[in-house]
Amino acid sequence: MNHESIGSLFVDEVKAIPGGEFVEMCYSCGTCVSKCMIQQKGEPEFNPRRLLRMVMMDMKDEAFDSRTTWLCSACDLCYPACPQKIHISGVIHAVKSLAVKNDKKTIQNIAVVDQQTCVACGLCVEVCPYEAIKIIETKVPYRGVINIASVDPGLCMACGTCSAVCRSTSIGVPEEFTDESVVEGLWTWLQSQGVET
């Protein structure tokens, strides 16, 4: 065995990151895949088992481009189901952090902060399940250098909890669920049912 090749394999890189240690224990039973909600709710290509195989088979680029790497929200439904006790979301997180290191960008719509209205109250920092939001001193046009919230694109999973708590409506995930469309939808329905004022 050539000693220089050790440590340069993709699987060794993944194993070196906390959470990725047990990737090689996977015997491909597919429990995680059928447990996963993401692939069932409209992402048929999402397949943690396949990502683990990619890691083991040294398929670095394919792993970085896989939707599995980016869409896993670490809900850990698969972890208690895994017969090999592999922390699958930990492995996926390890692959993701390697991908971020290799300048890959997330494929998700992440939360965006309105720099003009954010008052740095910190409510979003409190509620974010992924600790993706931090209050950082930033130079903002017209407002000077002030503390405002800022979102880490590598951590945000676009759940929108921040937008639900924001008192100044300065943070949100720009995608199909906007406050206006929800309120509009509610009123259209209520009016169709007949509202007495």
Binding site: S28, C29, G30, T31, C32, V33, S34, K35, N47, R49, C78, A81, P83
Partner: peptide
Amino acid sequence: GRPSLITEDPETHNLFVHSEDV
């Protein structure tokens, strides 16, 4: 593929096996 879940139809008591065909 190891099934991850069995659900039951509450009326017929038929069972639904969820698994990935590897």
